[in-house]
Design a protein around this nucleic acid. Structure first.
Lengths: 131, 131
DNA sequence: CATTGTAACTTGCAAAAAGCAAGTTAAAGG
DNA sequence: CCTTTAACTTGCTTTTTGCAAGTTACAATG
């Protein structure tokens, strides 16, 4: 009955930079994975999202669906009336984010396959000449 | 002398999905903006980053530079010896993220120019047919 | 017609990350 | 010595995320 924090103040732009503006909308931990689920993995329903490999918390899931619907990236459709059930689809704007995801995936496959995440880092100077 | 939290446990992959893996590395609020600063805006030094339009907190900045250097996305170079001064450059891996940023910027320019962020949202069902 | 089941959320509280301001370090220059 | 500057670091507050349990609207079962 009372939306409080997460759904109230939607983010304002940090700057005029288009990259920053895009990240203000979808630059959090989960939004782009939801776009991936819907646009690339044919997942459309609440339960489908919960069955994704990443197990996103249900409150965050609900919030992101709401936010991205409000932004116009997603569209919420009732697919069943009498027990009211819903599914989410990408709008044109949402669909046009897929090339970003494909670039990310491509980068990941080229550069990250089997990347070993270091445990403890000191990050001191003195370039290793990785160029 | 004692790194504590932010620099210690580097993120582990949420899943085997390459998109998720990429976002585990750079899917936070600031990392991609730093890649942008270095790769697109010719900013390389601590102070340059602080002069960016977005005013990132200095502790977060330090942490992200350290993390991304540890990941192999950035390279730290000493450009002056006797007062020790450093600058950061993209490695090949870091540079190959730029197409992702270009896609993001392109999406933003096509879909977000002058987007009015709504103030308060209820996000109820009943599609508006935005497709 | 009470009981169980299920999708789609919502709520409360704890944990983690981000943000802010002030402090530190290593030197140069006066 | 005293001030200045780049490049961080530290302590503390605020915001976001995560977890677990609860709620709502029905359908189906017995």
């Amino acid at each position: 009955m009372s939306n409080k924090k997460l759904t109230d103040g939607l983010p304002s732009r940090r700057s005029a930079c288009p990259i920053a503006a895009a990240l203000d909308l979808v630059g959090d931990k989960w939004s782009l994975l939801l776009i991936r689920d819907i646009g690339l993995f044919e997942r459309h329903r609440n339960k489908d999202f919960q069955n994704a490999a990443e197990t996103m918390p249900s409150n965050i899931l609900a919030d992101r669906l709401k936010r991205m619907t409000a932004y116009g990236l997603l569209e919420k459709r009732r697919y069943e009336e009498r027990p009211p059930r819903y599914e989410y689809h990408l709008t044109r704007q949402g669909r046009e984010l897929l090339p970003v995801l494909r670039e990310l995936a491509s980068w990941s496959e080229r550069n990250l396959v089997g990347v070993k995440i270091p445990r403890r880092v000191k990050a001191r100077a003195g370039g290793t000449g990785s160029d």
